[in-house]
Write a protein that binds this DNA or RNA. Sequence first.
DNA 1: CCTACATCCTCTAGCGACTAGAGGTGCAAG
DNA 2: CTTGCACCTCTAGTCGCTAGAGGATGTAGG
Lengths: 140, 140
Amino acid sequence: MKKITIGEAARRSGVKVPTVRYYESIGLLAAPSRSEGNQRSFEPADISRLAFIRHARELGFEIEAIRTLLTLQDDPHQSCASADAIAKARLAEVEQRIRSLMALKAELEIMVEGCGHGRVDQCRVIEVLADHDQCTHSHH
Amino acid sequence: MKKITIGEAARRSGVKVPTVRYYESIGLLAAPSRSEGNQRSFEPADISRLAFIRHARELGFEIEAIRTLLTLQDDPHQSCASADAIAKARLAEVEQRIRSLMALKAELEIMVEGCGHGRVDQCRVIEVLADHDQCTHSHH
DNA sequence: CCTACATCCTCTAGCGACTAGAGGTGCAAG
DNA sequence: CTTGCACCTCTAGTCGCTAGAGGATGTAGG
């Protein structure tokens, strides 16, 4: 088998080189074998694992959640109830975050629209920040 | 004038006690005068400033942006162009983040719906994570 | 006045998930 | 053989706090 260097692994998985080493250091990725010159030599399976991690991170899963998802992947006979629960929890988080950001968006739009582009003492941006009661929503 | 303790200031502004000290340490809030026993003694203006900071943080502004907004508030004769620019930039960020989260939401929903609640080797959650090509959107 | 207790003080270290940099070694091409 | 990139380890920094240690101060009741 051909040796996959860390740079190659990074390029193929889309995870940065220092991040690969970081994942190894926290035990998310098994320590690969080393070449004579002490350089890491990865297997194709490591690339898949890194891609899995990267994808999960992009979806906003936390490292500990990914650790659980990975142990599930490692043992395909387990029930996928935990995977389902993790994904559902993440979905709920995302939905909550979207709602919250929509409220922020509305408030920021009011601030920006109200700005007369004059001096600060007439600026709605500063004014709204200073006085919470001017918020349309009591979201936060 | 009556002395406002840090606990009182925290309660009135909605900023936690250690956070008030932290804001002072990074120069976001001027160091208040001290009592005989070396305890901080705040002015009403400090409470307003803290409330301003808190509100801006809730809206997701970064500390450095808030620092700029505060210097604008301190000098009301300045043009509010920078305040406007900061708020606009934040609005753009929020809009981008919402778009991104909507895409995530869609993907998570597909994962969760596809889960047959059986074993991991038939689980759509794990499967989608392992294979990025199964994503409906190429958002990330 | 004494005691209990809450609140205050400073300082350091930790969180998550990396990222940056120093200082050194390995390796392949020209 | 030398150039130059990729690799190695290790430490420290990022952001915005938060937690805890260990001690001083302030207040209310007995």
